[in-house]
Computed example of a mutant assay.
Amino acid sequence: MFEKLKRVLKPVAAPPAEADGLARWAVDRMLSHHRLSNGATVAEGLLLDRPLRAGCAPSSRPYIVGVELMARAELGLRDDVSIIVMHRTLKRALEKAAGKVYADAVSQVQTTDRPLPEELMWLSMYRDAGWPGPTPDFWARYCVLTDSVEAAREWLDGDAIDSLCDAPAELRPVTPFLIALTRGKVYLRLQMEAPDDGLVSHYALDTLEQLSARALKLFGR
C-alpha cells in the first residue's frame, strides 16, 4: 500500500539542494549545526528558549522528492490544538493519493495493521476551514486543516497571514510545503527544488519561528 502511495504522490524529480542556507540560519540564531555523511545538514539548539531540531536531507516522505527541509519546535503547547497550514496543491495531491490507497484496499480486500501516514490522516480528522479576512489569493494558495476554527483564526493573525502571502517567488505554490501545529509542537516540511542560497529556506524557517512565537503566546501551558 505504501509503495502505491509513493507512486501516486511522486512529483517530477527535483535537483539536489545544498544545505548551506540552513547552516547560515542556525549560526544567526546561535544553534549548533553539523554535516552528516550523506550530505545532510542538521541544526539543533534552543529557539524561543525551547528545543528545536532542523535538517536538510534526502526526503523519506512520499510527497516530497529530492531534498526536504524539515524542522520540529518542541514548544510544550497544549496538546488539544491541531492546525495544519499547507499549500492547497499539496492537499489535492494527498487527497488523490488517499483515494487511490483506499480504492485499492477495498478492491483487493486488503487490510494492514500499519497506520496510514499522518498527512493522510489529517484529511479525515480535520476540516478545511475558512473565514472572512484573508484575501482570496491566500485561500487560493493555502488551506487550513483544523477542528477549531477559532484557534486557527487566533494563531493565523494578520501578521501571520501577511508572512504566508509574502513567500518569495522561488517558493512556488505547487511546491510541497506545510507548517503544522499538533501534539504540542510546530513542524515544518518543505521540498527544496533548487540549490539553497538561503532565500527559500530562510523564509520558511523565519515563518516557522514567527508562528512558533505566536503559538507559545496563545497555547502555551
Rank of each mutant, 00 (worst) to 15 (best):
E170P: 03
A167E: 00
A57G: 15
V149G: 09
M121C: 13
P168W: 03
E18T: 13
L156E: 07
R35C: 06
R7V: 09
S124A: 15
E209L: 02
I83W: 05
G133I: 00
A215Q: 11
V85L: 08
K4N: 12
L190E: 07
A98H: 08
L9R: 00
G133T: 05
H202Y: 11
T111G: 10
G45D: 04
G184H: 04
T111Y: 08
A180W: 06
K6D: 14
A213G: 14
I161R: 01
G220T: 09
E154R: 02
D20H: 06
L36S: 07
R61P: 09
Q108G: 14
L9G: 01
V144R: 04
V149Q: 14
T111C: 10
D196T: 08
R24H: 07
G76D: 04
G45T: 06
G45A: 05
A194M: 06
P15W: 09
V12F: 13
R88E: 04
M30A: 15
C165N: 08
L178G: 08
I179D: 02
R24M: 03
D166L: 01
V174A: 10
Q110S: 14
R127F: 14
E74R: 10
L208C: 02
S212W: 14
K6N: 12
S82F: 05
D196M: 04
A169K: 15
S163Y: 12
V81E: 13
E68S: 11
R141D: 07
L75Q: 08
D128C: 10
E68V: 08
G55D: 09
A14Y: 06
